[in-house]
Design a protein around this nucleic acid. Sequence first.
RNA 1: GGUCCCGUAGCUCAAGGGAUAGAGCAUCUGCCUUCUAAGCAGAGGGUUGAAGGUUCGAAUCCUUCCGGGACCGCCA
Length: 586
Amino acid sequence: MDVFAGFHGHVLAAVQQLKHDGVVPHDASIDGITLEPPKDFTHGDLATNAAMVLAKVAGQPPRALAERIVPLLASDPNISKVEIAGPGFINLTLALAFWPSVLRMVLEQGASYGRSAIGKGEAVNVEYVSANPTGPMHVGHCRGAVFGDALANLLAYAGFAVTREYYVNDSGAQVDALARSAFLRYREALGETIGEIPEGLYPGDYLKPVGAALAAQHGNELLAMQESEWLPIVRAAALQAMLAMIEDDLAALGIHHDVFFSERSLTDGARDEVAETIADLKARGLIYQGRLPPPKGKVDEDWEDREQLLFRSTDFGDDIDRPLVKSDGSYAYFAGDIAYHRDKFKRGFNTMIDVFGADHSGHVKRMKAAVAALTDGKATLDIKICQLVRLFRAGQPVKMSKRAGTFVTLREVVDEVGAGSVRFMMLYRKNDAPLDFDFAKVTEQSRDNPVFYVQYAHARASSVLRNVRETFADLDPEEGTLANSDLGRLTDEGEIALIRRIAQFPRLVEAAATAHEPHRLGFYLYDLAGDFHGLWNRGKDLPQLRFIYESDRELTRARIALVAATKRVLASGLGILGVDAMHELH
RNA sequence: GGUCCCGUAGCUCAAGGGAUAGAGCAUCUGCCUUCUAAGCAGAGGGUUGAAGGUUCGAAUCCUUCCGGGACCGCCA
């Protein structure tokens, strides 16, 4: 829980008092009132905008109103100074005696420090990756995969009941093409010369083992069958192999899904979920037969003006209504996707998050429209778009071409720089901004490489905890024991700054989870590492500031407690990002 | 043509509607040989693409425009 939550309560109580005194109307909204650490610490430890928010309804200038609030806050012994500043901010400076309580909390709570209950156990479905099961994962899938996984971690940490889900597009032309490709490999495995893989099929070597397995299992009996007979058999085998490969690739990045939801299962079972979904929409009056205007701009040769089954998605903010059935009578992909999201809702998810690549940004409006329509607005769908990743090698763009077979697989990237570095870099940027990934940069040992910088801080903290015994053999660097140190000995500006940063962690987790923005955690960890390294560096010139200070055992003990708390928060934060916290650099 | 995203220091990027817009790199000026580790400290550097609007307050929200990217289908 937020270590500052109690102070927010004080502010609200003060406002309540003003209402009681008739200074502020009773029905005045307090929603906009915040109490948060200011960007600039010279403004104090916490600042509230209460006076500015209430000024209008109270009919008083903000600063005058602030004058009324100040005395109501000053009585708290943990608050050493209350000031009015700028346009009407009320700045609180916390008593020096407050900070030890924060450290003690970190050390006592250990891995739980920073966990939050704001999720209230609410079920959240995070769907990510969902790459077509027709081949190995390539580097383009990396970002969405890592983003979705870290977001899921973050939400779980904030108290949501998270389900990690992968939508398997195992229905449609591309998996039939996969089956035909595998069938060629099967014939190849039986000794046939198959020559070049035809255009439109998958040429990769990764289907050879699938062909070989089919040959081992079926001998040449599939050869005698019609395509309509062998295709389902080969398709099932190929899909299974592809999914196993994908799961393996994801595991290399530390990613594991709870549910693999088959698109085919929507129509393959006893019931046709897509038909039910369309009937559902029809019952709501959202389905009609109609014509769409031809696409503007780009001339489409195949465009055919025809009457078709349309979903009235424009009622929910989409740009045009969307067709659900193709001219050959089969369902459009979108119809299945709606049925899938309807299924999520039926499974109890009122909060859904889809992580898409930039190439799917066009689907956002229609998907949100569908969810709004089918759930009467009871469910929310947030769609996070991950922009492109551009690969560089020492500043030079890496050229990739699927045709030339020079595209980089996810596995290659992970093998070269390590899962931790890949994950951190993929998260060290807002999801909706493009990202440059340089192989050279992420392995560089410098401040310029945030992965290294944060890892190094954790390793350095670990090292201090290991080494303290050499000076004070009886000093136990275990968290629970350190919590009893005389933490009031920590009075240096740099030490307080570090504690202050550590104190931010819980609220940062909550803010990042609420905004669905895991990247904030990456930046926070970089700042935290910076504070820690900075303090270390000051000990270089000033031995009396060193963590291990030979002439003062109790001060050392307090400082070791600070190091342990720093290490703990670094480890927790890295854990949410899914990055290993290293105890030694190598 | 339309939709979405982006535009912030020389470069790469931060910044829950809050105060004097912050980091790293690069540049400049000093210092330095390690509590095992990346050398450190300081300085300069900005009309937040432009113009309007909303409000106590806008990089952030709205409108229009400019520039860059992604996308547009009865594919999946």
